[in-house]
């Protein structure tokens, strides 16, 4: 789909989609939304890019290895963060936790913000992988 119109429109639209996705991820602990919804929006922007520019160019920008590393890294970090929280909570040991902050601020809610970001990364990559696997049979 190498149309001029699509390319021009996508150049304008993709940044807006991504900014909106990042907004939904970052404000997940204050308003409806969160990692899953925001990650889906971000993933859709990648899918849009792939549909307009084709396989070869997208692979240059978002290579499979990088995406895989991001997803696995996000999952491992999620496990470590949440595991730390679980273990300290379960053992009743009062080790330092992430600060709760003032409700309503963006930097608040303890673990929710970093976990939302990690879920967002994972979902972004997963949605993109799913689409490419269905669409072309390979990533």
């Amino acid at each position: 789909m190498n149309h001029m119109i699509l390319q021009v429109v996508s150049k304008i639209m993709i940044p807006f989609i991504q900014v909106f996705g990042i907004y939904v991820v970052l404000f997940g602990h204050l308003s409806p939304g969160g990692g899953f919804a925001g990650g889906t929006i971000l993933g859709v922007s990648l899918i849009f890019y792939r549909m307009v520019y084709g396989k070869a160019e997208t692979r240059l920008k978002f290579p499979f290895e990088l995406m895989m590393k991001m997803m696995c890294g996000a999952l491992i970090l999620y496990g470590v963060l949440k595991g730390y929280s679980f273990l300290t909570g379960g053992n009743h040991s009062y080790l330092p936790q992430l600060p709760l902050g003032t409700p309503g601020n963006i930097l608040s809610g303890g673990y929710l913000l970093p976990l939302n970001v990690l879920v967002g990364i994972t979902v972004t990559v997963t949605i993109y992988f799913l689409f490419t696997l269905f669409y072309e049979g390979e990533i």
Binding site: M68, G73, L75, I76, G90
Partner: peptide
């Protein structure tokens, strides 16, 4: 006394280490 947290630790070890493998 730490043994109480071992079931959770087992789950964490297995699930976290799983995602090291593709890397």
């Amino acid at each position: 006394a730490m043994a109480k947290s071992f079931p959770l630790l087992i789950l964490l070890i297995l699930l976290i280490s799983a995602f090291i493998m593709p890397l």
